[in-house]
């Protein structure tokens, strides 16, 4: 059981880092991003390819971060006038574009076959305790990203981003370049997803395009939605909530005495969907009513 909890902590920490990235973009600056999985995938693929070529883990993470950040900047640059729903549609489409490129361009990551045997950092040193070591490493990354975000939230930049969220034209009218801040925020948030992607690839040692579908974006979106807009600790707890929901429902069947495996599997997905909808509904009203 302890080993399982370690695995869940690792998954949760990875998704929490992705969520913190989205919290910066959406929670702070009001940039709706439904394509966070694209940057997650970019980080995972970059780090995986480099790690397989013998690059040390820290450098692979850094590279994954940079590639994701550049992609984030690109998205922000091509969407300077889009807000709210329209930005959501473009980012959703962008994520699908990235996935289809990874699927069809076999030169990048073997297309549908994916990349396997991704080296794990310091694997020889820990052997049996490796999962625990990796969980610590991931949680450490989460703490670093969290502290960075907290610092940013309290800094003048954080205040400015929230001002952009509330009213762009006011910010523009006092002589600030809204576009420059949007690009910066988008690439910072994307970079965080890139870091998480690099950890994800090293943790699973296998990645394939089918792992990077819109559902990942939706999970992190829910995590951010649970939090009050802009709250970093809320986002981390939101990620914990989503994780508990995904994993906890798996244990339900050990207690249901009736129904076939198929029925229980379907019930589990229904329960997950209903809870997610209720959470979104409750929180959305909160956010809109302010």
């Amino acid at each position: 059981m302890l080993d399982f909890l370690i695995a869940i902590v690792t998954f949760t920490a990875i998704y929490a880092v992705v969520s913190l990235g989205l919290n910066l973009q959406w929670g702070q600056a009001g940039l709706v991003n439904l394509g966070q999985v694209a940057f997650f995938a970019a980080g995972a693929y970059t780090a995986a390819i480099l790690a397989r070529a013998g690059t040390p883990f820290p450098l692979a993470v850094l590279a994954g971060m940079v590639v994701a950040a550049l992609l984030g900047a690109l998205v922000a640059l091509i969407t300077p006038r889009l807000r709210e729903d329209y930005l959501a549609i473009v980012t959703l489409g962008f994520a699908e574009l990235v996935r289809l490129i990874l699927l069809n361009e076999k030169e990048i990551g073997n297309g549908p076959s994916g990349i396997n045997a991704i080296p794990q950092p310091l694997h020889e040193l820990f052997s049996a305790n490796y999962p625990l070591f990796f969980a610590f490493l991931t949680v450490a990354a989460l703490i670093v990203v969290y502290l960075f975000n907290e610092r940013l939230r309290r800094a003048p930049l954080g205040r400015l981003l929230r001002a952009i969220r509330e009213d762009e034209s006011v910010v523009a009218s006092i002589g600030k370049s809204v576009l420059a801040f949007k690009v910066e925020t988008f690439s910072l948030g994307a970079a965080m997803a890139g870091i998480a992607g690099a950890f994800y690839a090293a943790y699973l040692t296998f990645i394939a395009p089918e792992m990077f579908t819109a559902s990942v974006s939706i999970y992190v979106l829910v995590a951010v939605l649970i939090a009050a807009r802009g709250s970093n600790i809320g986002t981390v707890l939101g990620a914990v909530f989503v994780s508990v929901l995904l994993e906890g429902t798996d244990f339900i069947k050990d207690y249901i005495p009736f129904g076939t495996g198929v029925q229980i599997a379907a019930v589990r997905i229904i329960i997950m969907g209903v809870i997610l909808m209720l959470v979104v509904l409750a929180r959305y009203r909160k956010v809109v009513e302010g």
């Binding site: 939090a227 709250s231 914990v240 909530f241 508990v244 994993e247």
Partner: peptide, 23 residues
Amino acid sequence: SRRRFTALASAGLGAAAVAGLAP
């Protein structure tokens, strides 16, 4: 929200812990 979600999350964690013990 922080207060409310600390409560929510701990309830969730508790449920997971209970769920995890039985198997």
